[in-house]
Amino acid sequence: MNIDHHAPTCAMRRRISSANLALDRLSQCGEEPDDSVVIISHTDCDSVLSSGIVSGELPPDPRLGLAAIAADHTGEANVIADMLQELDNIRSVSLRADPQFALEESGSSYLRYSHDLVQRYLERGEDGLDERAQNAIAQRKRKRGAAREAVARGDFTMLGGVAFATLTEKLDGELFPALLPDAQVILMSTSRDGLSRWESKIWLGLAAPEGSSLHDLNIREFDSAFGGRWNAGANRRNGGSSIAPRAYAELLVRRLRSFDVKPAIPDQVPLDCI
């Protein structure tokens, strides 16, 4: 059974995350059989929350659904989202750099820790959090401020519905749609190795017509390294691209007309209660 909003289907072209699917499924289908196991492949906010809901480690609290939407889609301030997203960022960097940390932060220990944090927050608010979590929230606030400053400074150029920028600091893409409400597509580029290669993150903007998807743009036709879900993607995992930011933005602008042809989006995400 796959409880996942990443699927490239029309039903997922909406602001929904796996935690919302987990909440809906629990509400409509009831608890999973005791003889079941839960697997996850990463430890961002939505994975931590959805696995916690399905396993019973976390209660089916609607605040968890709101946190997942904030983390995956809106980027708005949300303590649970900010805490889990930044803890995951810090953990990911540390795992790459420090083998000892990797041993200490095995999957089971990190999940126990993160589920415990969420439970403590639900019961006692921010006072229930430890220093590590408080620091993560502060770091996320700093990043949100940096994103706001980048937009205010004019780092982004608007080109025919595409807002693009060359950023010196990697900032989480979900922080930008709310800051660039007129953009249909947001392109954030960082230099990978000097000036010859670029890492590009792309987000669907709030001005894109309802039901649009980045998949409609067929970005892989000019950037074979690009991959992602309907509203966000990047080419970092596959080595980036040699296409400079403005040229990349121009290629995107030419494809925006694809947004005019959209498939019918079902009213609800289907839930198979079996």
Binding site: N2, H6, S17, P33, I39, S41, H42, R220, G233
Partner: peptide, 15 residues
């Protein structure tokens, strides 16, 4: 049963 939650497949051409 196996319940795969938020099972994004990193490195795949698309999720």
């Amino acid at each position: 049963r196996v319940l795969a939650c938020d099972f994004y497949i990193s490195g795949a051409e698309h999720a």
